[in-house]
Amino acid sequence: MGPGVEGPSYHELRFPLLEKTVKRTQTLKEKYIIAWKQYGCSPMADGWTDKKGRHLINFLVNSPEGTFFFESIDASSQAQVASLLTDLLLAKIEEIGKEYVVQIVTDNGANFKAVGKILEQRIPTFYWTPCAAHCLDLMLEDIGKLSVFRAKIDNARRVTTYMYKHVRLLNAMREKTDGNNLVRPGPTRIATSFLTLQSLYKHRDALRSLFFSEDWTASKSTNTNAGRLVANTVLFSPFWTGVEYCIKASHPLLIVLRIVDWDEKPAMSELAVAMNEAKRKSKKILKKSQIC
């Protein structure tokens, strides 16, 4: 167009694009609705709390056509009361079409368990199914509470937290690991704690060399209690032996978690076999330490 041409304003761009997106989404929804009526569907409720302390529920609908994001609901006032939460979810089920709903899938929170039972009583053809991924996460949480695991997870969290709070040390660590970062434990999923152990173990040689390097010895952090504690942890051979054991013990369940988290195809057909294999391997590994 040449110099001097004035581009469209923010509002001129925003509203036409928004309207176009809404129409495209509605067209997409109509395709899913046809599948819901033909095959039936499974609403899925995923509750979480945002930074403002609001309890939000993402409401999705699954069918052979795929998973469609239906709505996000602010359920802050209803989240702790099963009867109110039931009415809220029942309204969404009615909106979808009660006759097309086969089941509802939620996490294993006490409030959602209660909701599931109430909905099963109200709708005879309907049943509640707990989320497989959340079940596995709770299993890993229980394993992580065992003393042999808890100590290693706490030490790993201390190491990664310290690393990411000190920019110079973090940059030096990235140089040692060829630009790779460490996996840090997440606040909502205990599985990330075990992934952190895997990440630390993978880069154990680089981390140990870091605490022998001038980047560390010339640092003021060497004179702090927190710095010395982290260095001693990384350079302590029994720590890595324990981390290796924790990785072996958690690996079977992490494999199952990857299967159920995979979006490419339904995982239920593989879940029973994968869980039986995970139980067998985990029991064998845990028996070696006389934990079970």
Rank of each mutant, 00 (worst) to 15 (best):
C135D: 01
M173D: 01
L13G: 08
L85I: 08
F212I: 11
I33G: 00
F236T: 11
W128K: 00
L17N: 10
T27H: 08
L84T: 10
N62F: 11
A206S: 13
C246F: 09
S72V: 14
P3L: 13
N225S: 14
K37L: 11
D263C: 14
V102P: 00
P130V: 12
H251D: 15
S83H: 12
V148S: 10
W48Q: 14
E71D: 15
G7S: 08
S9E: 15
I118S: 07
Q80C: 05
W216G: 07
A226D: 15
D46L: 04
L200P: 03
A278C: 09
G186C: 02
G242W: 11
G179A: 00
N180C: 03
I190G: 00
M139K: 07
R208G: 15
T224V: 13
G144P: 01
A172L: 05
K51F: 04
A82S: 14
I291S: 09
E99N: 10
L235S: 14
P16A: 09
H203D: 06
M163D: 02
K265H: 15
N58Q: 09
L253N: 12
D142W: 09
K281T: 07
K279E: 09
S219L: 09
L119K: 05
I104K: 00
H203L: 07
K284G: 00
V167S: 03
F59K: 00
S269Q: 08
N111H: 00
K281L: 08
Y245G: 11
T192A: 01
T125W: 09
R189G: 10
N111A: 02
